[in-house]
């Protein structure tokens, strides 16, 4: 069964007033954080001419398209069209929003009508989002201590110590992205090197 909630990034990588690309099951999303800190995920197509809104820029509580500057408010409704400053845009010009929550330092997205919350990840700290050109099977093959499907969890050796890790899986066209978390207190530089090493081994396995 495909999960409803998919991790699409880490909170630490989306500061205030920044937009980035995300996706849910092949659906491209613009994920952005307003000046006051509110995170939202929208369809990544500007209603005007289809430019990617993830390339846009945040001003206050609005996201503006990079192309012709149409401005969208917190509800996804177009508030301002620079070429027609006197016009109040009709409420039908609206970007479709996804459900988006931030929990345990992870940004999760799901279709708008989703009920319930993503799985809680207690005792873990966000590490890095890392993309791989192989599949989950290759990751599990090179790191037998890990298990799972949508969240790979286990006790692995980092810097000579057993350490709990959780890799949240996001599939994409080129392979997958892993949003990695590790136990609170673990040295993140050592853990980051472990993730890099895991990727090298998994991609070699995947290519074999």
């Amino acid at each position: 069964m495909t999960p409803r909630w998919i991790a699409t990034g880490l909170s630490q990588d989306l500061p205030k007033a920044v937009a980035m690309a995300g996706h849910w099951q092949g659906q491209d999303l613009a994920v952005w954080r307003s000046a006051t800190g509110r995170v939202q995920a929208w369809n990544d197509r500007c209603p005007h001419r289809g430019m990617r809104l993830s390339h846009g820029f945040v001003r206050g509580e609005t996201l503006a398209c990079i192309y012709h500057g149409w401005v969208y408010g917190a509800d996804g409704v177009c508030k301002h069209i620079p070429a027609h400053p006197a016009l109040t845009p009709p409420a039908t010009i609206r970007v479709a929003a996804f459900a988006c929550v931030e929990q345990d330092g992870v940004i999760w997205v799901a279709p708008a009508d989703t009920v319930g919350a993503p799985v809680a990840l207690r005792g873990l700290q966000p590490l890095r989002s890392i993309s791989l050109t192989c599949d989950v099977a290759a990751v599990l093959a090179v790191e037998p201590a890990l298990s799972g499907g949508d969240a790979l969890r286990g006790l692995v050796q980092i810097g000579g110590q057993a350490c709990e890790v959780c890799l949240l899986v996001q599939h994409n066209a080129a392979g997958l992205t892993l949003h990695a978390l590790c136990a609170v207190g673990v040295d993140r530089i050592a853990a980051s090197r472990w993730v890099e090493d895991l990727r090298r081994r998994a991609e070699r396995k995947g290519a074999a």
């Binding site: 980035m20 690309a21 890095r128």
Partner: peptide
């Protein structure tokens, strides 16, 4: 640069 969050923040 979609797959490189730290690089994106550095360019900003």
């Amino acid at each position: 640069l979609d797959a490189y969050p730290s690089v994106r923040l550095w360019t900003r």
